[in-house]
Design a protein around this nucleic acid. Structure first.
Length: 256
DNA sequence: ATGGCTATGTAGCATAGA
C-alpha cells in the first residue's frame, strides 16, 4: 500500500496540480492538509472523477483536511476526543483494513505565543488519542503536516533554527513521545539523501537554495513499519507554477 | 535586513503560514 500526504495550501488553487499528481502517482491513499475550503465548496466530484473516494472536514480560510482513497473509507472521525476545537485539523478513517489518521498540527507561530501553547496542548491530546487508536488497530498510519522538524538533519540551518518554533525542544519531545507510543518515522527506515526537506519558504528563493525543513511525515505502527519498503519526498510539484510551499511524501509498505 | 512570498477575505490592507 502506498499512502501519501500533502499540505496543498489551498485546494482551490492547487486542485489541478493534485489531480495531475494523482494521475501519475496513483497512491492508494492521499491525505491533504490546508484545503482552506468549507465542506459545501469541496471539489468532491472532480476527485471522484479521478477515481478516488473522498472524506473531508473543512472550514473557510484556514485549516481543512481530507482523505482520498482508491478503496472506500469507513469509520470516519473528525475530532480529537476530549478537546473541543473549532479548527478542522484532524480526520481519521479505515481503508482496506488500515487505520489512516490525517493531521494538520498547529504551526505555533513563535515559542512565546498563545499559538505555541495551543500547539503543545493539541499534541498532548493527539498523543493520548493515538494511543487508543493503536490499541484498537495495529495497522495504523499517521500522516500529515506535523510542523515539527524532528532533528537537525531535518533543518537546512540548524544553528539559525535552534530553539525556534518547528525545532524547539518541547516540540521535538512531543514528536518523540508520539514515536514512543508505538510509531516509527517511515522516512528514517531506509537510506535517504542529505538535505531532504518537505517545506521551503516562498521567499528568498528558498527552494532553489535548498533552504528547507522536513516537517511533513508518514508514521507507521510497528507492524506496518516492519514491512516498509520506501518513503519518498517528491520535490517535482514544488517546481510548478504557483506551487504549494510543501512537497508530497509517500510511504510504501506491506499492508497485510 | 524582523524583511523577503502566497492565499484568503474583501476591496486597500489585515491575518496567517512556517
Amino acid at each position: 500500500m502506498r499512502v501519501a500526504t500533502w499540505n496543498v495550501n489551498s485546494l482551490k488553487v492547487r486542485l489541478p496540480q493534485v489531480l495531475a499528481w494523482l494521475e501519475t502517482q496513483q497512491p492508494d491513499v492521499l491525505c491533504l492538509q490546508e484545503t482552506k475550503l468549507e465542506d459545501a465548496k469541496f471539489p468532491a466530484e472532480d476527485i471522484r472523477a479521478a477515481g478516488y473516494h473522498v472524506l473531508f472536514s473543512g472550514q473557510k480560510t484556514y485549516n481543512g483536511v481530507a482523505i482520498l482513497s482508491k478503496e472506500p473509507a469507513t469509520g470516519a472521525q473528525a475530532a480529537l476526543p476530549g478537546f473541543d476545537d473549532p479548527q478542522k485539523r484532524v480526520l481519521a478513517a479505515t481503508v482496506a483494513g488500515v487505520r489512516v489518521v490525517c493531521l494538520y498540527v498547529p504551526n505555533g507561530q513563535s515559542i512565546d505565543s498563545d499559538k505555541y501553547r495551543y500547539k503543545l496542548e493539541w499534541l498532548q491530546h493527539t498523543q493520548r488519542w493515538l494511543a487508543g487508536e493503536l490499541a484498537a488497530n495495529d495497522r495504523l498510519v499517521v500522516v500529515g503536516d506535523f510542523n515539527i522538524a524532528p532533528d537537525d538533519r531535518d533543518v537546512h540551518d540548524p544553528k539559525a533554527w535552534e530553539g525556534q518554533v518547528l525545532c524547539s525542544a518541547p516540540e521535538r519531545a512531543a514528536f518523540q513521545q508520539l514515536l514512543a507510543g508505538g510509531l516509527e518515522d517511515s522516512f528514517r527506515l531506509t537510506e535517504q539523501p542529505p538535505q531532504s526537506y518537505t517545506w521551503w519558504d516562498y521567499r528568498m528563493n528558498a527552494f532553489r537554495r535548498k533552504m528547507g525543513l522536513r516537517i511533513d511525515h508518514v508514521l507507521l505502527s510497528r507492524r506496518l513499519a516492519a514491512g516498509c519498503r520506501a518513503c519518498v519526498i517528491d520535490i517535482e510539484p514544488r517546481k510548478n507554477e504557483r506551487p504549494s510551499d510543501h512537497a508530497p511524501v509517500t510511504a510504501d509498505f506491506a499492508s497485510d
